[in-house]
């Protein structure tokens, strides 16, 4: 499956993704929470999928599709 994580293209295998939820799968869908585990995201963070904010209580039920764009942001300096 191909997806974009923080702007970078990635190709991942379902079997490589720890804790993905097969019961929610069609053939290629993964939960957003599995993707976050796969990429070792560290708190604090917030997430957008294809440019749309995803609330943290929806990570488990949000499915990732081919070519989806996942953005994970953390605090940084700002003026």
């Amino acid at each position: 499956m191909k997806l974009f994580f923080n702007g970078e293209p990635h190709s991942i295998e379902l079997a490589d993704v720890a804790g993905h939820q097969r019961q929610l799968d069609t053939k290629s869908a993964l939960s957003l929470s599995s993707i976050l585990v796969h990429f070792a995201v560290k708190p604090p963070f917030a997430v957008a999928l294809n440019g749309e904010f995803v609330a943290n209580n929806n990570y488990q039920t949000t499915l990732i599709k081919e070519n989806d764009k996942v953005d994970v942001v953390s605090p940084i300096f700002g003026g």
């Binding site: 923080n6 702007g7 070792a40 995201v41 560290k42 963070f45 917030a46 953005d71 994970v72 942001v73 953390s74 605090p75 940084i76 300096f77 700002g78 003026g79």
Partner: peptide, 10 residues
Amino acid sequence: VTLSLRRQSP
């Protein structure tokens, strides 16, 4: 204080 959000960098 002001601050911002950016893509998480390992």
